[in-house]
Design a binder for these strands. Sequence first.
DNA 1: TAGCTTCTCGTACTAAGTACGACGACCCGA
DNA 2: TCGGGTCGTCGTACTTAGTACGAGAAGCTA
Lengths: 225, 225
Amino acid sequence: MTERTDDSPGERPRLSRERVLWAAVAVADAGGIDSLTIRSLSQSLGTKPMSVYYYVANKDEILDGIVDLVFGEIELPEPGGDWRTEIRRRADSARRVLRAHPWAIGLMESRTSPGPATLRHHDAVIATLRAASFSQELTAHAYAMLDSYTYGFALQEAGLPFEGSDTVADVAEPIMERFSTGEYPHLVEMATDYYLRPGYDFGDEFTWGLDLILDALATRATATT
Amino acid sequence: MTERTDDSPGERPRLSRERVLWAAVAVADAGGIDSLTIRSLSQSLGTKPMSVYYYVANKDEILDGIVDLVFGEIELPEPGGDWRTEIRRRADSARRVLRAHPWAIGLMESRTSPGPATLRHHDAVIATLRAASFSQELTAHAYAMLDSYTYGFALQEAGLPFEGSDTVADVAEPIMERFSTGEYPHLVEMATDYYLRPGYDFGDEFTWGLDLILDALATRATATT
DNA sequence: TAGCTTCTCGTACTAAGTACGACGACCCGA
DNA sequence: TCGGGTCGTCGTACTTAGTACGAGAAGCTA
């Protein structure tokens, strides 16, 4: 029986906190965090605005929730494995995930209460370093550093004015022209000579920096052990 | 003559784009970025909402503007000086500035068009590295890295759930109790043994990591020269 | 089947961004 | 001095967004 006068395509399997939050992620991915409104969210779910309030207390809770979902997508390192391999894997994964959900980076700043996925994540990284016999002190240093680098890199990538498919050159050329006024000479030089070269990919910088950090940490680690 | 029926204290010197933007910074500093509304802004200026629209096209322009003002507060390195000294000075300055205006970090992600202060800043850093005879390639690596680290660190600091005066311990204790459930054992261990020690200051981690990066860059630089 | 719980949503209020155009203040040349 | 601009300020009002409140449908249990 179950008469359903449903105008949205397909069925409407019943709401749940999970479904609400994942839908919110999808909306933010598609149109940016500003496009995520209670109304747009409910529409993407095929329901009405007030329905989502049965599952979340308010919009802030949604924001906290989706940040934690994103963190949950990052691969955890496995304590006990080779620490460089594990740490690099999780750093690469973090960057990939944050590039897929760039809005999450900006949210991290304002949301100060970490969710379970976030905590689990921290725990795994610490465990991996400690298992590799990093001292507590070195673990703290290393962790702060790796996270700073990773998030900061993602932040910069998110700030770049172009999307995946475009190359740097396509977008930068017209911008460069605007200030060929002679201000910023070094910036312009670097841009034309280096960043705008055919094969340049800013993303590659990530690996370079990560290697540098890992090398340096390895040195410190063996020095202490 | 100039009859003024002014109800706000003091005078009202006349608006200007500058005054509007600095007032916006002040409002955001005081109450967070969410508290910055056209209405709160105009009130802090002693005027009415629509008055600010004579100086800015819309709110987004305000956001772009204040991010650039914040960037303008960061000390520029001086090309020609000792590169380590200069780069460290600007990194320290950047962190200080971003700690004073934590809302700016989250905004960086969404605002993709850099303002003049931001561009001037980039130019100065590149100039400093190049003057120290870093190759273009190494300059690109170093810059991406230093910025990632600096912004990422600021991002993490901003995410910490306490303000300047409190110590980590004050705020962390009650949180820790919530999950003494045995999940996150390594995290809890690190927290109690290390982060919650009396003198611990997360900010000190910045120096440690920065030194590590600078050392490593110095090695790479001399290897190439 | 009565009554209770679970879930959905209609209505409506508040806050915020901002379009439009009125209006006073000042400014200039005649 | 006066008449017509231009500049700066703001009143009004419309739109979009978050969400309080409570009605009522849907399903569950005894």
